[in-house]
């Protein structure tokens, strides 16, 4: 057998392997989604969306509302701090600055910590030490700390991808630092920054471990920020662990799935719009 045909057989083998892996990856995703849809959709009844939660209807509407409140709050706390930190790191700090080193090490460490650890920290600090008890606010602060590294990193990376040539062009025309940042750098970095925020929303919506010990599991719409409440993911976790409402848990999973897919679709449209749109000087 000659070398050439051996090579072509090898390349065919590699091609099949790659195709096979792609099919497996896609297949697993497809199977999970179909499985959840098949198990969950028959139980998506109007009573599941009742305003009041009772043990009969196991309504998930309060959980959806709590999820929204939780997401907005956590982002309100974390996004400004994270984005400013990212801007500081890239646009203001001089290289070799000690503070920069510290921020880098901190964010890297923070992003490697499992979320249950954040939950325990929240329990000890916000819930117990600050006396906020199981509450929306304690949960939101815990989540805010959890997503902070993600927002800092994505802001930083987005800013680093803005070519220096553009900054130089702006300075070269006599624009100051603030104008350069707001008119040139920020618009170019916006899609990346938003992608980080949307990723954070995804993590908040899917988070359970960090919330069980901080926001608690009360299934009502919280009356104020110091009341306990459960997000959709927690709701699902509680339903499935109680064992009485497995079907409803699947129905909840369908809703959660739709929310997550919706967020993803939203993020792609937003970043497409932003990259296409013109910036007014």
């Amino acid at each position: 057998m000659n070398r050439l045909s051996r090579l072509s057989r090898l390349s065919r083998l590699i091609r099949y392997t790659i195709k096979f892996s792609a099919i497996i990856t896609f297949g697993v995703l497809f199977f999970i989604i179909v499985y959840i849809l098949v198990r969950g959709i028959p139980y998506l009844k109007p009573s599941l969306f009742a305003l009041e939660y009772t043990t009969e209807n196991v309504s998930l509407l309060p959980a959806i509302i709590t999820t929204i409140i939780m997401t907005v709050l956590a982002l309100l706390i974390s996004a400004p701090i994270g984005i400013f930190t990212g801007f500081y790191l890239v646009e203001y700090a001089r290289s070799g600055n000690k503070l920069v080193e510290i921020i880098r090490i901190t964010t890297e460490t923070l992003s490697g910590i499992p979320s249950i650890v954040y939950g325990l920290f929240g329990l000890l600090f916000f819930v117990t030490a600050l006396g906020w008890s199981f509450s929306i606010i304690a949960g939101a602060f815990t989540l805010a700390i959890m997503i902070l590294p993600l927002i800092i990193r994505s802001t930083e990376e987005a800013l680093l991808t803005v070519p220096n040539l553009l900054r130089e062009a702006s300075y070269g025309l006599g624009a100051g630092k603030l104008r350069t940042i707001f008119r040139i750098v920020l618009p170019s970095a916006m899609p990346g920054i938003l992608a980080g925020i949307i990723l954070s929303i995804g993590r908040i919506v899917g988070e359970t471990a960090a919330l069980i010990y901080t926001a608690g599991t009360v299934a009502k719409i919280p009356e104020n920020l110091f009341a306990s409440g459960r997000t959709l993911a927690i709701h699902m976790y509680v339903l499935s662990s109680e064992g009485l409402y497995t079907n409803q848990a699947y129905a909840t999973a369908v809703v959660l799935l739709i929310v997550v897919i919706g967020i993803n679709a939203l993020s792609t449209t937003i970043s497409k719009k932003l990259t296409k749109g013109n910036i007014d000087g």
Binding site: L166, G172, G174, R183, S188, N278
Partner: peptide, 24 residues
């Protein structure tokens, strides 16, 4: 004023590119 080695227009319209300086 300065013109650079590599063309570096801003990612915006032709009009806004030229108007950036005067607006500044």
């Amino acid at each position: 004023g300065m013109v650079f080695q590599k063309p570096n227009p801003f990612p915006m319209s032709i009009y806004d590119n030229v108007a950036y300086g005067p607006r500044t």
